[in-house]
Design a protein around this nucleic acid. Structure first.
Lengths: 192, 192
DNA sequence: AAATCATTTCTATAGTTATCGAAATATTAT
DNA sequence: ATAATATTTCGATAACTATAGAAATGATTT
């Protein structure tokens, strides 16, 4: 089962139960199976409306009907209800509600705001979170595992902005690059 | 907590989660707390819309915000989610979703269809379920605990319909009255 | 086969809600 | 204080859904 299907299933489950009259139906069917006519009389709705609600509940796998004499007798699928609520108790199920990949949408938005057409940094964002997006973008100009003297670092950073000192300092501060105190060698720190 | 409040709370819970984008928000906040701006960028909605969704989730007690720097950081209340889903696992919670008293609405509807203005039975319904409603109505004319000879039973039943034999037989069949084989004594069986 | 009855499907309408853009509010930085 | 920025509130619109009544379908009895 894919993440999207999971989400859809859970969404259908919640939508099915997000109605006052459908909750009442669930409650009545939990007591005993009942016909459409009986249900609509008890909760005070037209039979077509009740039928509609039952169809939605059935689509979510919460009820089903068997035919008995003149009547369609609907009954509750308690196990579906319990399966779903138990799934909610599992942390992983909740975390997977949003596709993990889509997280760069935010980065894209920040980048398009603060970069010009040639990929240079127009201005530096004041907020940490946005600045980090910019820095993660800039640091890709360095090869992982390679060591750079300060002079070369400045040359590379100059492609992004005049203020190489600020960039250099920030890259160190946010632990995207490392620096060796003595010889002035820099290197890119791998993201983990 | 009254039954109505319970239902309302559960209804609010389901309504809060019955939206695709709110489910995504829940998923994102399960990974880590985030700001409105970040959330709206990632799921691709306007910030006002995202704010609206967050407000609904907060109303249901599912998220809350703390302020940090420029941002309002929203985080997930995992315990609310778990409380609710555990409540669903308890059978009593589900049965109480509909007020128990309201079950006579159906009876009322059946009675008004098959009784005339004086409380007499116009015709006998063909369906078991409806016939039972009529019989439960008729049997109230007998005092619990008292014994009636057949002749008196017929007199009483005559107030409801000419066909006293059918009524008598049905009352026995559906175990609303008992009969003593020998002397022909009848009595009303208490509902349990 | 015809008749009766329960249920569903169809059609239309009213109420609710998701959405966005603009204006207002709140918070932090200068 | 003033400016900058993030968030919420407001107003309007579009999409969705609950609802009822009428017509169609399906099932049961005679």
């Amino acid at each position: 089962m894919t993440t999207q299907e999971q989400e859809f299933e859970l969404l259908g489950f919640f939508k099915a139960l997000a109605d006052e009259n459908r909750l009442k139906i669930i409650g009545l069917l939990a007591q005993q199976p009942r016909s459409v006519e009986e249900l609509s009389a008890v909760i005070g709705l037209g039979m077509s409306t009740t039928s509609h609600h039952l169809a939605r509940l059935a689509k979510a796998g919460l009820v089903s009907a068997r035919t008995d004499r003149h009547y369609y007798i609907y009954s509750l699928h308690t196990d579906t209800l319990k399966d779903m609520s138990q799934r909610l108790l599992q942390d992983e199920q909740i975390r997977q509600l949003s596709e993990p990949a889509s997280s760069d949408a935010y980065d894209q938005k920040v980048l398009s705001s603060f970069l010009d057409g040639e990929g240079r940094v127009k201005t530096f964002p004041a907020q940490d979170k946005k600045l980090q997006v910019i820095l993660r973008y800039v640091v890709k100009a360095f090869e992982p595992g390679q060591r750079y003297p300060e002079k070369q670092v400045n040359e590379i950073l100059l492609r992004f902005n005049e203020d190489t000192a600020f960039l250099r300092r920030s890259l160190i501060e946010y632990r995207l690059m490392g620096r060796e105190g003595g010889g002035g060698a820099y290197w890119r720190i791998d993201p983990d």
